[in-house]
Design a binder for these strands. Sequence first.
RNA 1: GGCGGCAUGGCCAAGCGGUAAGGCAGAGGAUUGCAAAUCCUUUAUCCCCAGUUCGAAUCUGGGUGCCGCCUCCA
Length: 499
Amino acid sequence: MSLKLTNTITRKLEDFIPIVEGQVNIYCCGVTVYDLCHLGHARSYIVWDVLRRYLIWKGLKVTFVQNFTDIDDKIINRALQENTSINEITERNINKFHEDMDALGILRPDRMPRATRCLEGICDLISQLIANGSAYCVNGDVYFSIEKFSEYGKLSGRDITSQEKNIAGRITQEEEYRKNHPFDFALWKKAKPNEPSFPSPWGKGRPGWHIECSAMVKEELGITIDIHLGGADLIFPHHENEIAQSEAASGKDLAKYWLHNGMVNVAGQKMSKSLGNFTTIRALLQQGVSPMTLRLFVLQAHYRKPLDFTKDSLDAAAKGWMGLNSALELGKIYSKQLGWNSTTFSTTNESSLDSENTFGPQLGLLRERFINYMDDDLNTSGALGVLFEIARPLKSISNRIEHGESIVLEKEESKILLNQWKLIVELSKTLGLETEQSNPLLISKSEIEDSNIRELIDLRMKAKGEKDFAKADQIRDELKSKGIELIDKPNGITEWIRK
RNA sequence: GGCGGCAUGGCCAAGCGGUAAGGCAGAGGAUUGCAAAUCCUUUAUCCCCAGUUCGAAUCUGGGUGCCGCCUCCA
């Protein structure tokens, strides 16, 4: 089976066939950089990161472009609020965006164009649309005329004529007066007094929201791209309008496949800025939620379905990740105990797709099941199920060794286990799940110094040696009240973790 | 009102006509001064009604409930 994806524009599950064999051009709608990213953004970019990783793993050459919208009403307002420049706002948020995405292990896009740096392309495209009659200029504003684009509504399944009553009250009278059709949308917005602006053939102003994507796709990737990505909330009007602009200009399809991710919900409702029910990525990471927990949380649901965010589901993901992580750590930490030396390590090369021989029939089957799930419209929850099955014996051995058990394996057993470990490392990496070193954004809110903890542990050890358990328990409780949990290991060593 | 989506055990969630993956929680056992962790074992007939079929969670029709988009939004 080959990769199948649900194409929003046809509403069907389709075989994915690149325009040029072996190559994939992807455009992903990015963020408007007026504020920090929240969990909804995290979901979107984690899911598309997995798509990208999977395509690369399959051997395709992927070019991934994602934009920054760095000029817009919200940015202008934010700058006014903070009494600073829009440049300061956008630079700051772009930096934080990168920090957040890097922390989540999201591969950086190959290119990240910005609206304010693509103005030439934007103006060219607008000129072209005016020239061919698809757009018109009114007093320094330029609008796209949707009636000139007969296929308008094809992505979102809207019939404009039956929609007209929806527009009542949603646009101002002034707008209605200026626009030929109430659904016409701005390609270029005339600057109001004292607003930041850029020069254009139609006077000072700034680009409308949708036009930057059309211009960037053309400039960065060409007329027709393979895949266009975004959140489901962008289908209308954003992507509908992008299609109208690009296709009215070129006469060709903008993208072959349109993919949209489902929303993150809180208590059954969409997480959004306007509802105020959002949690930023930063806040979660700073609270000690690990990036991989977040990734697992996101990937446990299918990307097109809504995903409810609750404390419980996040905790469940954290526990799940701990288990998967102990399996991934097995070869990293205990290779010596298992007799995996450097030669046995290097017998296989990672990324060959037809490696049934290296993995054997049992593992080959698991690998195949994983691939079948992923090929079926990126069914990551199914794929994770397979991963947990592979992980189970590895996790068990990893934990048993950690708890002081000595594991003795036959040579053949050891070899099978090694291959199993290699398999899970390889497949997990496809989902971006990798053993992590540290969480760079974690703020340690320690009430107590590490050295202090060690002192108390030593004191407790001494008390235990003297069978003074009352005192030992008192120390345990004291540390517990400061968020420190003690774990006695069978080898007589006491470890601790911050809760 | 228009368009689209969803409904599976305590919670999350696969399943795409052949008799319910997986994670979390729970239960039982092992281990433990206590605690935690860990190991082993274990837990469902799929919102309702009707139909198609030898056979349906899966297909069709009709309900009910929830969500998203139609204004900025990942």
